[in-house]
Write a protein that binds this DNA or RNA. Sequence first.
DNA 1: AGACTTCAGCGAAACGATTAGCTATCGGAG
DNA 2: CTCCGATAGCTAATCGTTTCGCTGAAGTCT
Lengths: 337, 337
Amino acid sequence: MATIKDVARKAGVSTATVSAVMNDTAFVSPELRARVVTAIRELRYEPSLAARNLRRSRSQLIALAVADLSNPFYARIVWSAEAAVAAWGYSLVLFNSDEKPDTERRILSRIRTLGCDGMVLVPVGAANQYQPHEFEGIATVLLGRSIEGNSADTVTIDNWAAGRQAVDYLLDLGHRRIGSITGPMQLSTSKGRHDGMIDAMAARGLAPQPGHVRSGEFREEAAYSVARDMMGSPDRPTAIYVANGVMAIGVMRAIADLGLRCPQDVSIASTDTVAGAGGLKPRLTRTEHPIADMTNEALRLLVDRIEERGSEPVRNIVFQPALIVGESCMPLRANVG
Amino acid sequence: MATIKDVARKAGVSTATVSAVMNDTAFVSPELRARVVTAIRELRYEPSLAARNLRRSRSQLIALAVADLSNPFYARIVWSAEAAVAAWGYSLVLFNSDEKPDTERRILSRIRTLGCDGMVLVPVGAANQYQPHEFEGIATVLLGRSIEGNSADTVTIDNWAAGRQAVDYLLDLGHRRIGSITGPMQLSTSKGRHDGMIDAMAARGLAPQPGHVRSGEFREEAAYSVARDMMGSPDRPTAIYVANGVMAIGVMRAIADLGLRCPQDVSIASTDTVAGAGGLKPRLTRTEHPIADMTNEALRLLVDRIEERGSEPVRNIVFQPALIVGESCMPLRANVG
DNA sequence: AGACTTCAGCGAAACGATTAGCTATCGGAG
DNA sequence: CTCCGATAGCTAATCGTTTCGCTGAAGTCT
């Protein structure tokens, strides 16, 4: 691989001039410029990012660490993020913490070592697992989940509103015995959606039965077994709010396996987008996140921080969920419950 | 950010010693080692990859360029690849060529500039769009699709067998009027699956009607409109082979919108995995790729090339598809067709 | 004409690590 | 007591860029 010195020698100029031509950082006479350009072309010279970055202490890399790559929700984020990162002139380094705080810790250290200019993180740990200065020295935007007491920029949805919207919808259909299946309570997403659900019921003077409020891992299998358990008992709920799309799939499978029908026997409403949105039957009634918008916004904030090296105040952007009515809910009938 | 010099100063040793401790590359007395380790911890020192890589001329980066990040098939590859790359001690830089040769060209140049140690590429262009030495100087494994006449390692599936298996299955159910919807013919995947389909029919002395063999973009929308067109005519096929999971979703949607039922009115068999495998109804009968195995194998080959800097012979690994029977096909009945 | 600007282009010092080669110390052999 | 080999640890060169500060030629002003 040719280096800048080879180019300089071949063009009969100094390396400084070559650099100036490459970066348009100083005026170079047309004649010299032409010689340099020719030399670059003939030698097939490509500047070494390693050297350039060492010098500039930038890497042109943006890291994205998501919580679970097997979840289509995050796959969607990855898709949007790749496009946004490329559009801003960076490249995307992808990590999957797989919902494991230990893995996340390793990833954060790796991101530092790589010298990424910034990172978008979907944190997987409880707030107290992070040092106060955990993200110091590297531009950071938390996406989807926030960490209480942390000073990084965040882009999230209004989880409380999502839970409230979905459960209000079920209540409007006449359901009273409503269950919920959410993720780990130490995550801001689970907590918010759960609270929204509770508050929606409380607003009508209701409260879910103790056994009807469950939480578990944000995974299909976890949701499946919780749902089987909850729906197996005779006083099962007539409607369920499921906090996440992948879990909703597990719940629907559990219901089918129990010989129940959705929505005839049990209504299901969930939050967040769903795998195979086009093909799932019945289509889920759900509150959707504007994933692409959120991701784009996160990267806009991040690039802003990176390039301004800014001491701007912390920004917390909250997106509102939108209720999308599918076919997975129906009004409560007398013969059910 | 602390540098190796800061650590050396704080520990009262030379930078060489710090480096030796970090890399375990020379014997260091327990006492000094302890001092160094303490200093590293206290300063929260993380070595700069930029500097290290400049020196070692390696980047610890492996690039993955897939054809379409919105396709769950590639999302699945990304998932597996991230895990494999991390397991080998590298980090993953992700690119999406979005099935556009121009974008792919830019990506390849970017990968060079970044100095990635190797790349896994799902090529999107026709064979003649690549220079003979296109991938010279960077370890490369082509995944899923191959480029005729190119000397890179490849990991693919036997597309011909996939098409043949699926269509043999339809033939065994008694179908004779079988249509196919595949992707662009310049791609090895489309071509192979299409040929397998034709050969399966030819083996029984059959051939598809001209209007029943269609190809288009590997996307849901493209498949939807092609399917609507094909299934709208009175002599429509009784079964369709769809070359890809995303397209299958489009086809099923088209069928539903035409008021037809699957599998009662038309059987559908496809190749490759499907979005929302858990939730789609009816579940597709399909030939599946062992995506995780393929991806792991691709990375094994790649790391092998990177670390051996090897002149080993070119390796072409071909995986066999497996027929998974769902509920999207049924035997041909007299009243159909 | 002399003094002062301007500015194209160059030389060399960074950036932060690795590593070849050297120095100094120590123990043991002659 | 000297000399030698072994070896822990240091010095300094190096990787390929960017960039600060300098040089000297040309242009401008009085």
